[in-house]
Nucleic acid binder design. Structure first.
Length: 454
RNA sequence: GGCCCCGUCGUCUAGCCUGGUCCAGGACACUGGAUUUUCAUUCCAGCAACACGGGUUCAAAUCCCGUCGGGGUCACCA
């Protein structure tokens, strides 16, 4: 009788019968956050009593996903398929004590199963999230708890394991509410203590029904492939059904742990919103240290880019902020590279002269004139004071007079060779004075070679 | 259909327990505008909800009842 000192223990108990999906991790995450917050022990239990459908592949995938997300469990996973002896001992006791019996069946796969002797009472339990819930168990009848003495079924195994493992808090999806009375009945029959229950709301698809395979990209590891950061994914998932009670939305895992509480958990289901996840991901990308972001960039830029003769990490570091500004998912970095938005930092871009023409101008002679002006102006800047503010300051007045688009577009295009890119002053800064002037030169030459007429 | 859970902007939510400060706050998305041309940022503004009906009360998003709606679950799956 030392309940006050009793160690809090929770468990995440998935069944490896399919790809590990979003609903599953969210349950794992809530268990994990709750447990770390109160300083308890978080256990993993693999519910693989259904030998037909359970696959090791799915179990491994699930563990890999938890590892990716830094959801750590405290000891080696318990696998139900390895504890049949335990279950049959309990089963035998249940039969001996008259709480269960071998039942002759007329329908179904076999002619004998083991049923629980249900007294049909009203079961009441307190749910941490929903308050008191009451069920009349009469309608459940004598439900089946094992296919045979060697083959326990879900409800039996759950109750025995939670008891044996010393689980104090059962935090699981709302879809288990109606399983609870059955499990309480078994608990009472084996003399197990009743854990505290907390049924968390479901994650819903766009059609408001329980998220499942048919809703598309629900496999957790797919989000890793798509370029989401684990901390962002956890953050978004935590916000689906939980909130800190104020307006904060961006949290590290550590912050989630210290803020989490079951009292902040929502009752109603929540629709999974890909767009908000993307936004959360971007916020986390913005919060990455330069060192970490650089690491991601280096890992994700296309190999072709690294093969460029002038490729160097010094330049890569310089353009880090420009890349980060355009990154929502880590995979965007690869995409940028593939779409030629990175190459021009490392080599003179190739393009046709007509690209240098501002949309409102009629003639490339105008572009040429502005480029020459820029060239002459920039020439006067010292290497040491070459930066975006300087180049911009030197040409701004001229650009305003002549038409900013007319002056700035050809300049930017000369430096990037692309319809879209950072502004010319950013580009000039990272490219340096020498390269900038050289590219302007090339642009002027190109106009002369191709002729100014369009 | 039985049983159970839930019901605030399109979505995630604050507020509800301890009625008045809420003609309901924040965020995503969307629309419009601004900043230094293009892309991307950033900033500002706008749009938009208490499911409905009764009741209690001086006063209800908040308490009570009912209706409707949505979801979950009803396996020798978990």
């Amino acid at each position: 009788m030392n309940d006050s000192k009793k160690q809090i223990k929770t468990r995440f108990a998935p069944s490896p019968t399919g790809p590990f999906h979003v609903g599953g991790v969210r349950t794992a995450l809530f268990n994990f956050l709750f447990t770390r917050n109160v300083g308890g022990e978080f256990l993993l239990r693999v519910e693989d009593t259904d030998t037909e459908r359970s696959l090791k592949k799915y179990e491994d995938e699930m563990k890999e996903a938890l590892e990716w997300l830094n959801i750590e469990y405290d000891s080696a996973p318990v696998r139900q398929s390895e504890r049949t002896k335990l279950y049959s001992d309990y089963l035998q006791k249940l039969i001996d004590s008259g709480h269960a019996y071998i039942s002759k069946e007329e329908e179904g796969e076999r002619d004998e199963v083991i049923r629980f002797k249900n007294s049909g009472k009203v079961v009441k339990f307190q749910d941490e999230i929903r308050g008191e819930i009451e069920f009349d168990t009469t309608e459940l009848g004598d439900f089946v708890i094992a296919k045979s003495i060697e083959e326990p079924l879900y409800h039996l195994a759950v109750v025995i394991d939670d008891h044996e493992m010393g689980i104090t808090h059962v935090i699981r999806g709302e879809d288990h509410i109606s399983n609870t009375p059955r499990q309480i009945l078994i608990q009472e029959a084996i003399g197990a203590e009743r854990p505290i229950y907390a049924h968390i709301p479901l994650i819903l698809g766009a059609d408001k029904s329980k998220l499942s395979k048919r809703h598309g990209a629900t496999a957790v590891l797919q989000y890793r492939e798509e370029g989401y950061l684990p901390e962002a994914f956890n953050n978004y998932l935590a916000l689906l059904g939980w909130n800190p009670g104020d307006d904060r939305e961006i949290f590290t895992l550590e912050e989630l742990i210290s803020e989490f509480s079951l009292s902040g958990v929502q009752k109603g289901g929540a629709i999974f919103n890909q767009e908000k996840l993307l936004w959360v991901n971007r916020q986390h990308i913005l919060n990455l240290s330069d060192h970490d972001f650089f690491h991601h960039v280096e890992e994700n830029i296309p190999a072709d880019l690294k093969k460029l003769p002038n490729y160097n990490t010094k330049m890569l570091k310089k353009i880090l902020p420009l890349i980060r500004e355009r990154t929502e998912k880590i995979t965007d970095i690869t995409k940028m590279g593939d779409e030629g938005e990175l190459e021009y930092y490392f080599e003179q871009p190739g393009y046709f002269a007509k690209g240098l023409l501002w949309r409102d101008d009629e003639d490339l002679e105008i572009s040429k004139k502005h480029l020459k002006h820029a060239q002459e102006t920039f020439e006067e800047i010292d290497e040491e004071s070459w930066n975006r503010d300087m180049t911009k300051g030197m040409i701004w007045e001229y650009a305003t007079e002549q038409g900013r688009g007319s002056v700035l577009w050809p300049l930017r295009y000369a430096l990037s060779g692309m319809d879209r890119s950072p502004d010319p002053f950013e580009l000039a800064e990272v490219l340096g004075k020498e390269e900038t002037l050289s590219r302007i030169d090339v642009a002027i030459d190109r106009i002369e070679e191709e002729g100014s007429g369009i």
